[in-house]
Write a protein that binds this DNA or RNA. Structure first.
Length: 509
DNA sequence: GTAGGGTTAG
């Protein structure tokens, strides 16, 4: 019995299922060819599935000539769409034409998706238009191509001229409106649906949640009876995203009572809520919960969430273990770690991490600079603070925001350099920033610079006329040096404007 | 053998 005619050698087939690196895939490919199994259908299906899961256009490319089969182009094209890799995808297209496979429905649909993924909606459309009878999936593909490139009008035109629409088409169109932020149209189309699916329902919930409208999101959720893990996670993350961690937790509790198996996204949403609460017991419980349900801890979102949650909840040891275990650290994980150190009084460690991040060749973004400047401020590192501020502007070409300025002003002010801080504020472009003037005022109080403090306070009265706290702060400055006449004057001005100090709020000097 | 919904950090 020749190998090609016989059953595939079990080891190869089994190994393909387990294959998780390109190197392994290449070795298996060599073995397939050596054993003459490259025309074996079942084996090819496994091979292309492995190509698919590894999203490897280069593998697809190099194996193309050796594997002329119907099964290859669609899965390889999917790999090219995911990256996306236009040269290889186009080469596959050419090969498909050469092999006479380009009219195949699966190949054609994969090509429509591929050109869409590399922003060539026009090419997708030409391929679609030349189809005699597009499959249902081809219709979805062309709608999604237009949705993804933001051309909702063309998507709708296609949708309207469809001879037959199935639920997936409706879902895609409703989801398209949600994606482009047109909730009105999404809602209208949703109401027109012959069957309102959980998928369309969940799209809408996500859209309203993203727009910050949790009332409508909740109303839609209450109406949805066949809730699945998607709809629950949309609600939990909606509440968490909008700063209602308590509500998020409440919904999660309800979710648990239903006995539905959580997935990575539910966990990510839950961790967002926990980070806001800073509840270390809850954080520990969540990690246990993750293990119970075999959630993928190596999932980038899960890992980032875990690091962030532990850092925010004060478990820096755990956060550090997770951070160091990452095969490749990114800007986000660095940012979470730096923030955690900053929050828990180890500003110097945050600054150390920043320098390590630069050594690793990562490019800090504006959020990272906010954290590192905050850290310098906490630790009183004047020289470093000035240096990073200049680095941000000159090396990374990031325009400093009001918050960046406020950090540096605060740092200078607290270190006795109130006049420098004042010069810095005066050099700020744009509208006067209350945070920076407030930081200057606090610096003046610390340094006992009454004259400059008055300037800062006056400026704050101007830009925040309704903020009673500024008046209180200025009157406290006078009170500290026994200038009671000035205290009464400021108080009188404040009450004259109808402002009263908010009960329970104290300004810590 | 293909398609549609929910994704973290400031």
């Amino acid at each position: 019995m020749t190998p090609a005619a016989g059953r595939p050698s079990p080891p190869v087939a089994t190994l393909l299922g387990r294959c998780c690196t390109l190197r392994c895939l290449a070795q298996l490919h060599a073995r397939i060819v050596r054993l003459g199994l490259h025309n074996h259908h079942a084996l090819l299906a496994r091979f292309t599935a492995a190509c698919d899961s590894l999203a490897s256009p280069s593998v697809a490319d190099s194996f193309l000539s050796a594997l002329p089969s119907h099964a290859v182009p669609p899965s390889c094209l999917r790999a090219c769409s995911r990256v996306p890799c236009k040269p290889t995808g186009s080469a596959l297209h050419a090969a498909a034409i050469r092999l006479g496979l380009d009219a195949d429905l699966f190949v054609r649909t994969a090509l429509i998706q591929f050109y869409g993924s590399c922003s060539s909606a026009g090419a997708s459309r030409m391929l679609f238009d030349s189809m005699v009878i597009p499959s249902e999936v081809s219709w979805t593909a062309i709608i999604m191509v237009y949705v993804d490139c933001g051309d909702i009008v063309s998507a709708r035109e296609i949708f309207d001229r469809m001879p037959h629409r199935n639920v997936v088409h409706w879902n895609a169109m409703v989801g398209g409106y949600v994606k482009c932020g047109d909730l009105e149209s999404a809602r209208r189309l949703f109401e027109e649906m012959p069957q309102r699916t959980a998928a369309a329902h969940t799209s809408l919930i996500g859209g309203y949640a993203k727009a910050g409208n949790m009332q409508v999101a909740k109303m839609l959720f209450d109406k949805l009876h066949d809730r699945d893990v998607f709809s629950w996670s949309a609600m939990i993350s909606g509440y968490a995203q909008n700063g209602y961690p308590g509500e998020a937790l409440r919904v999660f509790k309800e979710f648990r009572e239903k006995g539905i198996c959580p997935d990575e996204l539910v966990i990510v949403a839950l961790m967002t809520a926990c980070s806001q609460l800073g509840n270390i017991m809850l954080a520990k419980w969540i990690e246990g919960y993750i293990t119970t349900y075999s959630i993928d801890m190596n999932n980038a979102h899960v890992l980032a969430g875990l690091i962030n949650m532990n850092a925010k909840c004060g478990n820096m040891e755990r956060a550090t273990v997770l951070f160091e275990s990452m095969p490749v650290r990114d800007v986000f994980s660095y940012c979470s770690m730096m923030q955690g150190h900053c929050l828990h009084g180890s500003a110097n460690k945050a600054v150390e991490l920043f320098t390590r991040m630069l050594l690793e060749g990562l490019s800090p973004d504006n959020a990272v600079f906010t954290v590192v400047l905050t850290a310098c401020n906490h630790a009183g590192l004047v020289e470093e603070g000035k240096r990073y501020f200049a680095m941000m502007k000159n090396e990374y070409l990031i325009m400093p925001s009001g918050d960046h300025y406020a950090c540096l002003v605060s740092l200078l002010g607290r270190s006795g350099m109130v006049r420098d801080a004042y010069e810095l504020i005066k050099s700020m472009p744009g509208k006067p920033h209350p945070g920076s003037w407030g930081a200057l005022l606090r610096g003046c109080i610390l340094q006992g610079d009454i004259e400059l403090g008055k300037v800062a306070a006056k400026k704050l009265f101007e830009i925040e006329p309704d903020n009673a706290g500024n008046y209180v702060t200025l009157s406290n400055i006078y009170a500290n040096i026994d200038r009671w006449a000035d205290v009464s004057e400021v108080r009188a001005e404040m009450t004259g404007k109808g402002l009263t100090k908010i009960a329970g709020r104290t300004v810590v000097l």
